[in-house]
Amino acid sequence: MNKNRLEAFSDGVLAIVITIMVLEIKFPSGDEWTDLQPLIPVFLSYTLSFIYIGIYWNNHHHMLHTVTKVNGKLMWANLHLLFWLSLIPFTTGWVGENSFAAFPMAVYGIILLMSAIAYFILQRLILHSQGPDSILAKALGKDLKGKLSPIMYLLAIGASWIDPAISGAIYLFVALMWLIPDLRIEKMIIAETD
């Protein structure tokens, strides 16, 4: 199968996820600045989730750029990732509507953790199908950020019961850690084409 179809489908799903998230933000009933104040937690949760979706979209794009062939396993692994990412709007809305309460923050972390695991599975299947000398294998190296993220999510899930602000700070830290584009794949693709 051509990887372009897989990329286009994934891009479409992620675009819908972002659209659903923004449509969940309700208009204030008044026309004063103070009428916007109750929406601050909703907007903050939307912003964090938008960043996460952007990070996944960016890294997914780079990772799929290294793929030379797509098989059924990769398609199912990609759908698995999209499943977890498609739940982000639900948890985003829940967190925002409940002003970052403990249980919604824990569930938000579970969705982020499962998304990270699904991404890892997709990455491993790509590595297995493309071989140890593939661009992706060379680019990943030790993948410290990829190994640290699930640990941070687990810490944040636990911290949500102590203080949801700590949990939110950890989610923000992981997002900021990934916000800087991962140039390893780009560098390897350029090196391979030179």
Rank of each mutant, 00 (worst) to 15 (best):
V174R: 00
A156F: 03
Y171A: 07
P104M: 13
L125S: 05
G109K: 04
I135S: 05
L127D: 04
I185S: 05
L140N: 14
M105K: 09
E186P: 01
A165Q: 13
L154S: 04
F100V: 11
E186Q: 07
I180Q: 04
L144A: 10
Q130R: 06
K138M: 04
A159V: 12
P150Q: 11
I166W: 09
A159G: 05
I126G: 09
S115L: 01
D133R: 13
G158M: 12
G131K: 12
S167L: 06
Q130C: 07
I110N: 03
A159K: 09
E97Q: 10
A102R: 11
M188A: 12
L148Q: 03
K145A: 03
D163P: 00
I121Y: 10
G141Y: 12
K187H: 14
L172N: 02
N98K: 06
S160G: 08
I117P: 02
G131D: 09
H128E: 15
L122W: 07
K147M: 10
M177A: 08
K138Y: 02
I157P: 00
I121F: 10
S115W: 01
A137R: 10
S167Y: 13
L179T: 15
Y171S: 04
L179W: 14
D133W: 03
A159S: 12
Q130P: 05
Y153R: 02
L113T: 00
S167W: 08
A169G: 06
A101F: 02
A102V: 05
I180R: 01
I151Y: 03
G141S: 10
Y108G: 00
M105H: 04
D182R: 10
L144T: 14
S129C: 05
I126T: 14
W161N: 06
S129Q: 12
I166G: 00
D182P: 04
L113M: 11
L113S: 02
S99P: 02
Y153S: 03
A169L: 13
G168I: 10
A118V: 04
M177N: 09
I170E: 01
H128L: 13
P164D: 07
Y119A: 10
K142T: 14
I135L: 10
R124E: 15
I111A: 05
I110M: 09
F103W: 14
N98M: 06
E186L: 07
S149N: 14
R184H: 14
G146T: 04
M105T: 04
I180H: 02
A169N: 07
P132T: 15
L179M: 15
L176R: 07
I121C: 06
P150K: 12
D163A: 08
Q123Y: 11
K138H: 09
L154I: 14
A175K: 07
L148R: 03
S167H: 10
A165E: 12
L148H: 04
I110Q: 04
V174W: 00
D163V: 09
Y119I: 02
Q130F: 09
K142P: 08
I185D: 02
H128W: 08
P164V: 01
A137E: 08
W161P: 00
L125D: 12
W178C: 09
K142A: 15
R184F: 09
L125K: 10
I121H: 06
S160M: 04
I157S: 01
S129E: 15
A169W: 14
